[in-house]
């Protein structure tokens, strides 16, 4: 398929969407209990945890990528341990590595909205549900999730969009293997390096439209799903 006479490269686009989807799923599964735990935490450790979760916001992505590269190196402890559990292959310069890197990179974008959503849910609603014979998981499913749905929506969309837009971590951890680790942002960088401005323009414009659409979706849903607590 061509657009404005330029061949669209689908491989980095599909890869990007795949990595972003996987990352979002992993973040929702891991981020929900983490955010719940942090939201109900009263000790002073909460400050440290909040800061740790927010680190990727301020750290240059290359720093994060560099440390992940060290930790996930093929002869390192993490890869060795995984291989005992039957994991074949290496973490760096692979899709798995990209997802792991993206999870760390996008962590604050999932945890912060969830945490804030959980914090606005009054404890007494959960107490009331407990006196009405609801177990913890039951309370979480029937009280917390509906009341925090804006938080879940925001967390999912922002993690997805942020993963789509990452560059530094991907470059450090994934490299630039076409079809394997070459995501859209890397492809654009490549095109610019090779002075292929037309291709760079096309991919960039697509990213621009996509990002704008996602953000409008988030704000639109936020308005629609407004939940009053009280």
């Amino acid at each position: 398929m061509t657009l404005f006479g330029i061949e669209i490269e689908w491989s980095p686009i599909w890869l990007t969407l795949e990595i972003a989807t996987l990352t979002t799923l992993v973040l929702l599964v891991l981020g929900t209990p983490l955010a719940w735990w942090m939201a109900r935490m009263k000790s002073s450790n909460k400050v440290l945890l909040e800061a740790l979760v927010a680190l990727p916001l301020v750290l240059p992505p290359t720093v994060l990528g560099f440390y992940l590269l060290i930790i996930m190196n093929p002869n390192g402890m993490v890869t060795e341990t995984l291989s005992w559990f039957g994991y074949e292959g290496q973490l760096t310069f692979s899709k798995t590595g990209l997802v792991i890197g993206s999870v760390f990179y996008s962590l604050p974008f999932a945890v912060q909205p969830l945490m804030h959503a959980f914090e606005t849910i009054p404890d007494r609603l959960l107490d009331a549900a407990a006196t009405l014979r609801a177990s913890f998981l039951d309370r979480f499913r029937t009280i917390v999730m509906p009341l925090a749905r804006r938080g879940f929506l925001t967390a999912a969309t922002l993690s997805f969009a942020h993963t789509v837009g990452e560059f530094g971590v991907v470059l450090m951890v994934g490299g630039n293997i076409p079809g394997e680790t070459r995501m859209v942002s890397i492809a654009i960088f490549d095109h610019v390096e090779s002075l292929e401005y037309a291709q760079a323009h096309l991919l960039s414009a697509m990213m621009l439209v996509f990002s704008l659409a996602v953000l409008m979706l988030v704000y639109g849903l936020n308005r629609k799903f407004e939940v009053k607590v009280g």
Binding site: R124, L125, D127, A128, A129, L132, P146, L147, V229, G230
Partner: peptide
């Protein structure tokens, strides 16, 4: 708590805001 057979009425009612009155009663 769920197995203590108690009814609890809180200071500010603690009704579930995302449910209707009937759904609150049915909960």
């Amino acid at each position: 708590t769920a197995e203590r057979d108690i009814g609890f009425v809180f200071q500010d009612a603690a009704l579930f805001p995302h449910l209707s009155v009937r759904q609150n009663l049915d909960y």
